[in-house]
């Protein structure tokens, strides 16, 4: 009910598309997915790819305190003031879906500290296949799985695989080593997702995160249009 209108005073609520001053706020993209599928590596690669043209910040939701935030800091993908970790009380899915207040506060703090921002990436701690982001927190969400987690994940479905605005199937370079059938994964994903896009990535390849970055650029163009 608060979509698209502005509140007086500080701390606008939820998904308001504008800042308190009336300007259009940063696009917020959520990245979720199971443990070890390469969410943080994808976020890091996206930051490297996009940071020269865009003002970016990252919010991490860790199971333990700040480990993903610290990975990003160590790898210096963004200056430290552009990375904020949210503590989730062992339940990242709660913090990104059921009670998004701490994440919205982090978004606000980043805007205040380093804004105006073009793009905020909100990363969920590795949780489970049912974790999805609230529409009050993000404008689009990416679900990252990997070929090594088993090629039956797309077939099994679940809200992440089925409804994410983008499904990324990562670590394609490992497919021959773990016996995963990429064709089958693509077929199953299509079946679960209909027309929603699926991208295969290998962050170690020359193309790297490029296709995901292109998808982000399209989202951003639509957001600011």
């Amino acid at each position: 009910m608060h979509l698209g209108h502005t509140h007086d005073g500080p701390a606008a609520v939820s998904a308001d598309a504008t800042r308190p001053d009336g300007t259009r706020r940063a696009l917020r993209i959520g990245l979720g997915g199971p443990v070890g599928s390469g969410k943080t590596a994808t976020v890091a690669a996206l930051c490297r790819e996009l940071r020269d043209r865009l003002s970016i910040a990252v919010v991490t939701n860790d199971i333990y305190t700040r480990e993903d935030a610290e990975f990003l800091l160590r790898n210096a993908v963004l200056p430290p003031e552009r990375i904020q970790g949210v503590e989730t009380g062992a339940c990242p899915h709660t913090a990104i879906r059921d009670d998004i207040s701490a994440n919205l506060e982090a978004v606000e703090d980043l805007e205040e500290a380093v804004g105006p921002l073009d793009l905020i990436l909100v990363e969920s701690g590795g949780d489970n296949l049912t974790a999805t982001f609230s529409k009050g927190l993000v404008d689009a969400q990416v679900f990252v799985i990997d070929v090594a987690g088993g090629d039956d994940i797309p077939r099994k479905g679940g809200p992440g695989v089925t409804t994410a605005d983008l499904l990324v199937i990562n670590k394609t370079d490992l497919a021959p080593h773990v016996g995963s059938d990429l064709q089958r994964m693509a077929r199953d994903a299509k079946e679960q997702r209909g027309e929603l896009p699926v991208l295969f990535t290998s962050l170690t390849s020359a193309e790297g995160v490029g296709p995901v970055a292109d998808w982000v650029r399209v989202q951003l163009a639509a957001w600011t249009a």
């Binding site: 913090a95 701490a102 506060e105």
Partner: peptide, 11 residues
Amino acid sequence: GRFPAGGHAHS
């Protein structure tokens, strides 16, 4: 307890 005001992250 599900009132979305951040309490779930605190012990």
